[in-house]
Amino acid sequence: MDLSPEQMAARLGAFVAREAGLETQQVAIEGLRRLAGGSSREIWAFEACLSPREGERRLDLVLRRDPPGRDEGGRDLEFRVVSAAHEAGIPVPRPHYCCTDPEVLGTSFYLMDRVDGEALPRRLLRDDRYERTRRALVPQLAGILVQIHRIDPDQPELAGLPGGDARPGASPARDEIERVAEGIRVMAAEPHPVLELAVRWLRERVPERSRRTLVHGDYRVGNVLFDEDGVRSVLDWELAKVGDPVEDLGWLCTKAWRFGSPHAVGGVGSREELLSAYAYAGGDEVDPEHLRFWEAVGSYKVALVFIQQSWVYRTGRVRSLELASLGRRIAEAEDALLELMEESP
């Protein structure tokens, strides 16, 4: 379905009217525009002007959807996860309506409040105006994680989350490692001794016991909106799942998200600060070895992402300059893995 912006606005107007219990002519959609970012999802912004018989209100909204023709059907689950986070008092854009009917826009989508804020980690790390934000960031990110990990992953509203099957003997950590290893085996163009060594190191360290909670799945500085006072909003819940909460802490420490800074946590703080802030906010005491394991899984996954992007280029699927250059970044993930293996040989 290829819609012009005008057609898209008209359909959105009818959808919002239906959801809000209004007549179609009582809703006007204004300023519909596509926003940059959201590499695998399309993001649009617009204003919805609702004019019932009494009172008028304007909603500043963002629409998130799979690109046309690539409906992965997960928007409904993502919407339910964001709704649960919103109810738990976690700073997320307030979710409004979700639409799984492909007749409306071609792919499923949901609508949420538009939140102002900066999203570029490099500005966070370098601009003077974010000095206060940098100091507040580690405790804030840790506190929000504690709240996320307290959400009941077995509530009926979250049915269908990956990893939700709690069979005895199941190990989400082991499954994750083997999934990445298989991806590397299939797509890597050349042998990678560092990655061979890393996968053995990881298999040896799979945590025997871990808690089972809701996991954000992509918790890093690049996925939060911030301003001069700190975190405004946690975004990108599409990889949410049930698993080991330490995975979110480890991913937050993964070297790829430090943007050249020597500080482990998103380029602004240390692992020790993160773990003590997490415990202070009411989270579990986390063994640094357990954190190191998940940080290494993070860099192992980052290696696969670069291998995969280079593969997409090399096999001629997408001839993009950006993808072409990413294969050379595998070395950065290898460097991070070596560092972790040297610390704990």
Partner: peptide
């Protein structure tokens, strides 16, 4: 590990 450190 020393060899890989050098190649990386």
């Amino acid at each position: 590990l020393a060899h890989l450190r050098g190649t990386v």
